[in-house]
Design a protein around this nucleic acid. Structure first.
Lengths: 148, 148
DNA sequence: CAATTAAGATTACATTTGTAAACGAAGGGA
DNA sequence: TCCCTTCGTTTACAAATGTAATCTTAATTG
């Protein structure tokens, strides 16, 4: 049985740090601090705190390199992204998720390949898609019209 | 110039309360408390606190009904959902958003109509979709391979 | 009318998060 | 060898959040 790795929760600010490390593959604190100081008005100690918290949370791993550390991602970027989005979606009314996804699509820039993948994925779902998805906001089930 | 209504932020626990009110259209505290006590192990005072915070945040409005209040949503459910998802997506690497949306689609139950709407929306995007969306994790732009 | 109940308001308290200063040890240069 | 730079660690502190007890007041009931 593999270690049940319960999804690490990454806060908004921490997310910025992770993106740097994910993109570079690995990085020492100097690099992370330099890059983030350019993108935000964060002071170096702020970024150090974020790095420290990510290490404690198990999102970043460390390798000693002389006096310093080299940080590497311990969680996958795509998995973190998928998890965060699904998490958010899961706490919303099941009946309205589809509409929300349409709105999100409309406002998100996607590459041709992404659009094609999405179309393929949806085409595959179409045959087995239910006629409707019920609201799950009330204990029993929502028969109301869900005005909003 | 209309009042720039800066998106109200709703926390996870508060989200549960909003869903009840959105679904019912309006509700008094007794109703909200009864329903939520069934879904969670929350005590009545906990729910009262959440309701109070939502009123203060401007997410719920009140109408006096005798000694009690009737709560109504001041923000639209669909708008709140769209905003929360876009917010989450916006803080992620632009290059990987498409893939994440594919994964989200795969794991979300959608009605036939939703699937069709999504397909239509995507079909419309396809012609103008860029060949690729660049990573925006680094200050300048990410030319790296973005291993993750 | 007195005692109980219920509704909303006030207070409480630990944890997480954003944001950062201060500190201690290890190297590098004068 | 002695100071200064750096890195990582410790401490700080306010706001947001999860979770709830207590209090005040007005209404319900016997």
């Amino acid at each position: 049985m593999a270690t049940t790795e319960l999804a690490v929760t990454i806060s908004d600010a921490e997310w910025r740090v992770m993106r740097i490390v994910w993109t570079l593959g690995q990085a020492d604190s100097r690099t992370i601090i330099d890059l983030l100081e350019q993108q935000h008005d964060w002071k170096a100690p702020t970024i150090k705190t974020l790095i420290g918290r990510l290490v404690k949370k198990g999102a970043l791993g460390t390798t000693k390199n002389g006096r310093q550390f080299i940080y590497t991602p311990l969680i996958k970027e795509q998995a973190a992204m998928d998890g965060a989005l699904l998490n958010e979606l899961d706490q919303m009314c099941a009946m309205h998720r589809g509409t929300s996804l349409v709105h999100v699509m409309e406002q998100t820039e996607l590459s041709k390949a992404d659009v094609q993948n999405l179309i393929d994925c949806l085409a595959k779902k179409l045959p087995t898609a239910p006629e409707m998805v019920d609201c799950d906001c009330l204990p029993d089930g929502c028969e109301g019209s869900c005005e909003s």
